[in-house]
Nucleic acid binder design. Structure first.
Length: 500
RNA sequence: GAGCCGGUAGCUCAGUGGUAGAGCAACGGACUUUUAAUCCGUGGGUCGAGGGUUCGAAUCCCUCCCGGCUCACCA
């Protein structure tokens, strides 16, 4: 634990000192900006542009941050910014009288409320001719608003570290960041809307779990003082949602944070957002259709198009996804066949032939999935369902009836990256017990990420679980692909950072 | 965890052994339809931190911190 660092503003630089002095002057004049509680606005800034025809000559009240300030003697122009956009304001000295000098106490970043009439300058820009104004709050640190001309920007906040650590500044001054992060929020909203329309119930399940199961990953561990026992932070939503299906909630989903105690990279944040849904009486093909419709819906509703492009590849979510059996995809790309993976020895040999190093803990299925990741995934640019995953890496999925080494499981790929994972859920409690036992054996053999044995979940399944289709989607990854972000940190407001 | 690159003014960046710089921002002045406003002037720095080499270090060496990219585990 580190003691928090306390700064005193007196120690800060002259830019802060000057703003503090301006604040004092305002207070001395009885205009303390921090005493203001409310300012009644008639319009958001963008709506003044949108409704200019009706508003011309009319009086409006608007508010926002000062994002640009151009004082030219006895006339002053400024731009206010709010969450909808920007609007220019105009003040004249002879109309304002003594109050005109208050402009000298304005800084970029301050909040201003103004009342005035709407007009267009001779260069055609919609502007509010200010009659009265009030400072609503003051920024005592300089906000790095860039210089702008049209779409061009100068002196923009580029420093990646500062953009992540002080995301509020990034949001204020970098429109691309703002658009991308808001798009992610709207995606989540549209996913909810899509599922709600189809009769799914959104639920919340425990984050603190006795045994974090449902995926292969190392958990975070925490401690409950009153119970004096250890809990793990969830690594997946799966096993609790299935308990709810057993409890009669036939269509259920959760969008929630899960936690995996693993490395941080451009594609990994220790806490990330998962969507998992379960639909009783649905099979794998039903879930494929659901995924197709979900992406179509989100694309259209959030981005207004079904066509997306990344690195020169165009995809269209109005089209059905391609479907290919995993072992067929591997054969197409490597020439390796199912027979090459019959035994661990042969599978190891086959993997090494295509340049993949096999670790001791790898199972046959693990090796097959490595071949998928290394040799096949990058070719799956168009939306594609790869189905028929090995049984030993899919301990919660039903077997394929005619090929028991593989399961009724698919992964959805897009632009070469995995975006969805779905099973026809295993609902046979006897087989589920046997699968957990296999995972337990792997764990005993040193695989820390093998699925834990969950006796309480088995108990639930023994009371009867319907045939069920299930789906998991990494929301952050989905947001990266649809917004064209190269790093997961660009689609998470506050990504994990080391202590700075 | 490994390799490569980076950290200099509020912001964006120059500066590779010899007095710490530029643009924007700030401050003072001029300017009543500007819009990267313009013009004149002024102030502003723990050069990520610590140690070392040297007459002299932002610069060379070592250690550490933080970030980026690539790789490995994974979603």
């Amino acid at each position: 634990m580190h003691e928090p660092t306390h700064h005193t503003l007196e120690e800060e630089n002259q830019l802060v000192q000057i703003r503090l002095q301006k604040l004092e002057q305002l207070r001395a004049l009885g205009l303390d900006p921090f005493a203001i509680e409310r300012y009644e606005i008639t319009h958001a800034l963008q709506t003044v542009h949108d409704d200019y025809e009706q508003l011309e000559g009319k009086t409006v009240a608007v508010a926002g941050r000062i994002a640009a300030l151009r004082k030219m003697g006895k006339a002053t122009f400024a731009h206010l910014m709010d969450s909808t956009g920007k609007l220019q304001i105009y003040l004249k000295a002879d109309e304002q009288g003594e109050r005109y000098d208050l402009i000298d106490l304005w800084d970029l970043g301050d909040y201003l409320g103004v009342q005035g009439f709407v007009f267009k300058t001779r260069t055609g820009e919609v502007t509010v001719h200010v009659q009265s104004f009030t400072m609503l709050a003051k920024a005592i640190r300089p906000v790095p608003f860039p210089k702008e001309k049209g779409e061009q920007r100068w002196y923009e906040l580029h420093d990646v570290e500062q953009r992540y650590r002080q995301r509020y500044l990034d949001l204020l001054v970098n429109p691309d960041s703002r658009r991308r992060l808001i798009a992610r929020c709207r995606m989540v909203r549209e996913i909810r809307r899509f599922l709600d329309e189809r009769g799914f119930l959104e639920v919340e399940t425990p984050v603190l779990q006795p045994i974090a199961g449902g995926a292969a990953a190392r958990p975070f561990i925490t401690h409950h003082n009153a119970l004096d026992r250890e809990f793990q932070l969830r690594i997946a939503l799966e096993l609790y949602l299935k308990r709810l299906v057993i409890g009669g909630i036939d269509r259920v989903y959760e969008i929630g944070r899960v936690f995996r105690n693993e490395g941080i990279s451009t594609r990994h944040n220790p806490e990330f957002t998962m969507l998992e849904l379960y639909q009783a009486y649905a099979n794998l093909e039903d879930i494929m259709s659901l995924v197709e419709e979900l992406f179509h819906h989100v694309a259209e509703r959030v981005f207004g198009t079904t066509v997306f492009e990344m690195h020169g590849i165009r995809v269209d979510f109005a089209q059905p996804w391609q479907r290919i059996r995993l072992m067929d995809a591997i054969r197409e790309r490597t020439g390796l066949t199912e027979a090459d993976f019959e035994t661990l020895e042969r599978a190891t040999h086959a993997a090494e032939k295509v340049g993949i190093s096999v670790e001791r803990k790898d199972t046959i299925g693990g090796i097959i999935e490595k071949v998928l990741e290394k040799c096949v995934a990058e070719h799956l640019q168009q939306p594609t369902f790869v189905y028929g995953f090995p049984i030993d890496t899919s301990p919660l999925a039903k077997r394929e009836p005619d090929n028991p080494r593989f399961t009724r499981r698919f992964e959805g790929y897009l632009f070469g990256k995995e975006v969805a994972n779905a099973f026809s859920e295993l609902n046979d409690p006897l087989e589920q017990r046997a699968r957990f036992e296999q995972q337990y054996a792997l764990r005993q053999a040193g695989d820390e990420e093998a699925h834990p044995f969950d006796e309480d979940f088995l108990l639930a399944m023994e009371y009867g679980m319907p045939p069920t289709g299930g789906l998991g989607i990494g929301i952050d990854r989905m947001a990266m692909l649809l917004t064209g972000a190269d790093s997961i940190r660009e689609v998470i407001f506050f990504p994990q950072m080391r202590e700075g």
